[in-house]
C-alpha cells in the first residue's frame, strides 16, 4: 500500500477575476503528490502562479476546480498541519521578538509561561539570544527572517510552506539562511514546499524540483535531486551532478521563462 502523501494537488485550477472583470486563469489542472518528509522546490517563471499554488496548499484560497488533500483529507479551511514563511515581513510589527515567536503556542492555548520558555529556546536556536525584547523594525532583514523561522517552526508543523522566503535578502545573508534552514530541516525532516524562481537555490536545497510552465501554470515536470546530504549550499554548486541537473532542468525552464517574458513584453 502506498503511503498517504503529505500534500496532494488533484486537478487544481485557479482563476481570479481582475478588477476589470476579466477572468485570469493562473493555474490549470495541476496534479502532483508530495510524500511526507520531502523537500520540494517549485520553480517557474515569475508571475506564473507558484505562490498561488502555495496559498492553495495553505488553505488561504480555494481552487474553483480540483482540490488539495493534506494527509489524505481535502482542505476546507486553513491548513492546520502547515505554517507559512512569507517573502515579505509577516511579523507583527507591534510585538517584540519574544511575543512574535510566542504567538503560535499561545494561539494553540499553551499556557503563557510555557509558551515563553519554548519561545526563548527557539530564539536562542536561531541565534537571536539577547534580542528578545526588540521590535522587528530594530532588526536587520536577515534577523527578521530568523524570527519568522522560529515563529513558524516552534509549533512543530508537519508541513512548511515557503514563498521565496529569502528573496529580499542580500546574497551573503541568503546563503547563511539557506544553510541554517537545511540544518534545521536535517534534524526534523519535515515536508517542505519551497517556492522560488531561482533554480540554483531550488537544486541546492531540495529533494525534488517541480517545474511550472508560464502562466497559466501547468506542471511541466518533476525532477529528482539525488545530491548527497547534509549539504552546504555554496559547496554543493561545485558538485558535477549539480551542474548536470541544472543544465537539464534549465533546458525545460528556459522555454517557459522566455515565453513568460515575451508575453509581457510584446
Amino acid at each position: 500500500m502506498r503511503a498517504i502523501p503529505a500534500v496532494a494537488f488533484e486537478g487544481v485550477t485557479i482563476r481570479f477575476r481582475a478588477p476589470s472583470g476579466e477572468v485570469h486563469t493562473v493555474a490549470r489542472d495541476i496534479s502532483f503528490d508530495i510524500a511526507e518528509g520531502t523537500f520540494l522546490a517549485i520553480v517557474g517563471p515569475s508571475g506564473c502562479g507558484k505562490s498561488t499554488l502555495l496559498n492553495a496548499a495553505a488553505g488561504l484560497l480555494f481552487p474553483p476546480a480540483g482540490r488539495v488533500l493534506v494527509f489524505g483529507e481535502a482542505l476546507a479551511g486553513i491548513n492546520k498541519h502547515a505554517t507559512y514563511l512569507f517573502q515579505q515581513d509577516a511579523l507583527l510589527p507591534w510585538r517584540s521578538v519574544l511575543d512574535n515567536v510566542m504567538l503560535g503556542p499561545l494561539f494553540r492555548s499553551m499556557p503563557r509561561a510555557a509558551a515563553m520558555e519554548e519561545a526563548r529556546r527557539w530564539i536562542e536556536r536561531v541565534g537571536l539570544k539577547g534580542f528578545e525584547d526588540r521590535f522587528p523594525h530594530q532588526l536587520s532583514g536577515g534577523m527578521r527572517k530568523r524570527v519568522a523561522v522560529a515563529q513558524s517552526w516552534i509549533v512543530n508543523p508537519r508541513i512548511l510552506l515557503m514563498d521565496e522566503p529569502f528573496g529580499a535578502l542580500d546574497v551573503q545573508t541568503r546563503q547563511i539562511m539557506e544553510n541554517e534552514l537545511l540544518g534545521l530541516w536535517q534534524e526534523t525532516r519535515k515536508t517542505v514546499l519551497f517556492v522560488t524562481h531561482d533554480l540554483e537555490e531550488a537544486i541546492a536545497l531540495a529533494d525534488k524540483v517541480a517545474v511550472l510552465s508560464a502562466g497559466p501554470a501547468r506542471l511541466k515536470g518533476v525532477y529528482e535531486v539525488d545530491l548527497p546530504r547534509p549539504r552546504d549550499v555554496a559547496e554543493i554548486r561545485l558538485n558535477p551532478e549539480f551542474n548536470r541537473l541544472y543544465t537539464r532542468i534549465w533546458a525545460d525552464l528556459r522555454e517557459e521563462v522566455k515565453r513568460s517574458y515575451d508575453a509581457r513584453h510584446p
Partner: peptide
C-alpha cells in the same frame, strides 16, 4: 494582508486576530 495571513496560518481565532492584529494595526 501578509501579517493577517501569517497570524491565520498560526491558527489565531477570530478573537485573537482582533486582539493581536486588527486592533494594534488600527491603533
Amino acid at each position: 494582508l501578509v501579517i493577517l495571513n501569517n497570524a491565520r496560518m498560526l491558527q489565531a481565532t477570530d478573537h485573537q486576530l482582533l486582539r493581536h492584529v486588527y486592533l494594534p494595526s488600527a491603533m
